[in-house]
C-alpha cells in the first residue's frame, strides 16, 4: 500500500466521509474511491452496494479478484426531546450501534436520572448543534420528538441543511401540515421538506413509547441499509 493512499484513507475517516479501498489481491495494485467519486467509478454498482451494507469483502471484476475495504463513518443518532420515547429508545439504539445523543432544553426532562449513561445535552438544539453536539452530517439520523415547534423546528432545519440520511418528526398529519407551512415559509424546498418522515416511524401500529421507539429505529435502519445513500438523499 502506498503511504499516500493510507494517509488519504485515514483523512477520509477523520472527516467522517465514506471511502472504499480497492485492492487487486494478485499484485497489490490499489486505488481509493471516495464516496463523492463513487457514481462515476467503473465499479459504481458493486461499490454502492458494499457502501450501503458497510461490509468489506472480495468481488470479481474483469477476471480480477478485488478486495474492497469499506470504510463508513459510525452512524450517529440525534434525538430532540428527552421524552418517554427517547428513554425507551436509548437501550435499543445501543444494541444497533447507533451513537445516541439526546437534546432537550427543558431541564426537567433532560436529567441524567432519566437517561443514565446517555449523552444528554440540556440546551436548545440550535445552540447545541455544532458546539456541544458535533455538527450534523450525512451519516447522522435526526428524530424530533418534542411536538414543540420552538424546539423541533431548529433541529429539523439543521438536519435538512446537513442532508442527514434520516430526518423524522413526531406529530399528527395536521401537526405536520403546519410544520410544512413553517418550513416552506423559511425557504425550504418541497424536495427538502419531503425528506422528513412524518408521521414518524414505520407503520407497525405502534402504541406504547417503546413500540414507537422501535418503529422509529426500524425506519432509521431502513434508510441506512435499503438503498445507497445517494438515492436516499
Amino acid at each position: 500500500m502506498r503511504s499516500d493512499i493510507l494517509a488519504a484513507l485515514n483523512d477520509e475517516r477523520a472527516a467522517r466521509r465514506a471511502a472504499i479501498l480497492v485492492t487487486d489481491i494478485a499484485d497489490g495494485a490499489q486505488r481509493l474511491v471516495r464516496e463523492s467519486d463513487l457514481a462515476v467509478d467503473p465499479l459504481a454498482d458493486v461499490l454502492a452496494k458494499h457502501l450501503a451494507s458497510g461490509k468489506s469483502g472480495l468481488v470479481e471484476a474483469d477476471g480480477r479478484t478485488l478486495f474492497l475495504t469499506v470504510q463508513v463513518p459510525p452512524v450517529r443518532l440525534v434525538v430532540v426531546g428527552a421524552v418517554h420515547i427517547s428513554q425507551a429508545m436509548a437501550p435499543m439504539a445501543a444494541g444497533l450501534d447507533l451513537a445516541l445523543t439526546v437534546i432537550d432544553p427543558r431541564t426537567a426532562f433532560a436529567t441524567p436520572e432519566r437517561f443514565p449513561g446517555i449523552a444528554l445535552v440540556a440546551e436548545w438544539p440550535d445552540a447545541a448543534l455544532g458546539t456541544t453536539v458535533p455538527v450534523l452530517d450525512r451519516y447522522c439520523a435526526l428524530a424530533a420528538l418534542t411536538h414543540d415547534p420552538k424546539i423541533d423546528d431548529p433541529a429539523l432545519k439543521a438536519a435538512l441543511a446537513a442532508e442527514c440520511f434520516y430526518v423524522g418528526a413526531l406529530g399528527s398529519r395536521k401537526t405536520h401540515a403546519a410544520r410544512v407551512a413553517r418550513l416552506t415559509e423559511a425557504g425550504f424546498t418541497p424536495a427538502q421538506i419531503g425528506r422528513i418522515h412524518a408521521p414518524i416511524g414505520l407503520p407497525i401500529g405502534a402504541v406504547s413509547p417503546a413500540e414507537i421507539a422501535l418503529a422509529v429505529l426500524a425506519e432509521v435502519v431502513a434508510c441506512l441499509r435499503r438503498a445507497p445513500r445517494s438515492e436516499v438523499a
Binding site: 503511504s3 493510507l6 494517509a7 485515514n10 458497510g54
Partner: peptide, 18 residues
C-alpha cells in the same frame, strides 16, 4: 468496520511516518 481496526490504520500511518 470496528473502530479498533481503523485505529490500526492510523497507527500504521504514524509508524511509517516515523
Amino acid at each position: 468496520m470496528l473502530s479498533t481496526d481503523t485505529d490500526i490504520l492510523s497507527a500504521a500511518q504514524s509508524w511509517r511516518r516515523d
